[in-house]
Structure formats: structure tokens, C-alpha cells
């Protein structure tokens, strides 16, 4: 193991990790937010709008992430949408994740019994208050695990951003490997970075789950 390689490439790798974290956190939180909005719209709209939302979900889910990324980054300028690689990366991440998140939230809405909504309406709650105070806390019991799951999947999807020259972790690692003809060490370090993200997400998911299932434990 040539440690002085890491002295030289360490800053670049750390910077790459930072970019990966940025794209992952902003992109997947944005995707979750968009997915939540889609699920709410779906829950409260008639058959017509539902068809449109469903079409969005099917189309985005039905295309590979790399194609979406290419379309946005290389196709965008044709429509006057000029994005830097990082901007394109984050934006496509938001779009790519949103239908999966939307489906998780839709399942969450369905898992909350109708009587819970009715009881809240009878007290005079507005629909947004119902979502915020009654439905979200309950659906989190059943959707925290799939949400955590998808956040973990997304950590590794960030690697695809390297194809449009986002200077993220894989991009920096490949640069290092290409310039130094070493492969084992850089990719070992790369794995450690992803592993840390996954472990952190998993830990956070368990914390959230403990918190939202408080009421199910007696005493």
C-alpha cells in the first residue's frame, strides 16, 4: 500500500466525497419532498389528475437514471436549460427519486385507516393539519424502513453522476487510478466512503423508527 498516494490524492478524494454527499443529500431530500407532494396530490385529486400523476411515475420509473441525466445535461441546453454538472446531477437526482418516494408515501397514506381521517374531520381539522398531525406520524411507522432503504440505494446511485463529469467520489477515484495505475487502494477507499454513508443512513433510520413507534411500546 502506497500511503503517500493518499497524501497526494487525499484532498481530491475528500472533495469528491463532499460533492457526493451534497448531491446525495440535496438530491434525495428534494426527491422525497417532490414524491411527498405527488402522493398528497394523488390522495386529494380526482381521476383526471391522478392519471397524469400516474403517468409521471410510470415514465420516470421506466427510464434508466443515466438516460435522465443525459437528457437533462446534454438535452437541456436545446431548451435553454444550461446547467453545471453538479446542478444537473442534483436536479436529475430529484426527478429520478421522486416517483419511488411518491409510491412509498402513497402506500403510507393507504396504511392509515379511513377512520383516522374521519375522526380528524369531525373535530374540524383542515386537510393539511390532518396530514401533518394525524397521518404523517402514523404512516412513518410503516414507511420509515422503505424510506431508509431507498436513501441507501440512492447513496450508490450518485456514482452515475460521474458520467457527466460531476467531480464526485467515483470521478475522483477514477482520476487517481488512471494517473497512478493503482486500483486496489483507491477503490477500497471509495468503498469505505460509501459504506460509511450507508451505515449512517441505516443508523439514522433506526433512530427515526424508534421515535415514531414510541406509542407502540408500553410503559
Amino acid at each position: 500500500m502506497e500511503l503517500d498516494l493518499f497524501v497526494r490524492y487525499g484532498p481530491a478524494l475528500l472533495h469528491g466525497f463532499g460533492v457526493t454527499l451534497l448531491c446525495w443529500i440535496v438530491g434525495s431530500l428534494g426527491g422525497m419532498l417532490l414524491g411527498f407532494v405527488i402522493a398528497c396530490l394523488y390522495q386529494w385529486s380526482g381521476p383526471g389528475p391522478r392519471l397524469v400523476l400516474q403517468a409521471y411515475v410510470e415514465i420516470v420509473r421506466g427510464t434508466p437514471f443515466m438516460i435522465q441525466l443525459f437528457l437533462l445535461y446534454y438535452g437541456g441546453p436545446h431548451f435553454g436549460l444550461l446547467l453545471t454538472p453538479v446542478q444537473a446531477g442534483i436536479a436529475s437526482f430529484v426527478v429520478y427519486g421522486s416517483p419511488y418516494f411518491a409510491e412509498i408515501f402513497r402506500a403510507g397514506f393507504q396504511a392509515v385507516p379511513q377512520g383516522q381521517f374521519e375522526a380528524a374531520r369531525c373535530v374540524g381539522f383542515g386537510e393539511w393539519t390532518i396530514v401533518r398531525r394525524i397521518v404523517l406520524p402514523q404512516m412513518l411507522v410503516s414507511i420509515t424502513a422503505p424510506l431508509t432503504n431507498f436513501f441507501i440505494i440512492l447513496t450508490k446511485e450518485t456514482a452515475i453522476l460521474s458520467v457527466v463529469t460531476v467531480p464526485e467520489l467515483l470521478y475522483e477515484t477514477q482520476t487517481m487510478a488512471a494517473e497512478t495505475f493503482t486500483y486496489i487502494e483507491p477503490f477500497l477507499v471509495l468503498s469505505l466512503f460509501y459504506w460509511a454513508m450507508v451505515e449512517f443512513t441505516s443508523w439514522l433510520g433506526k433512530r427515526v423508527e424508534l421515535r415514531v413507534t414510541r406509542h407502540l411500546r408500553r410503559g
Binding site: G115, E118, A119, P137
Partner: peptide, 21 residues
């Protein structure tokens, strides 16, 4: 909603919110 807050309702299945005391 203004009308509903004047009308209380008690359900067969209670419909208490399980995450609240």
C-alpha cells in the same frame, strides 16, 4: 369545518389517534 366543529362524533371503532396519549 366550522359546521363540523359544532357537531361531535363518536365512532364504533373509537378512531383515537394511536400516536397521541
Amino acid at each position: 369545518r366550522e359546521q363540523r366543529r359544532q357537531i361531535g362524533m363518536v365512532f364504533q371503532q373509537f378512531n383515537l389517534w394511536p400516536h397521541m396519549t
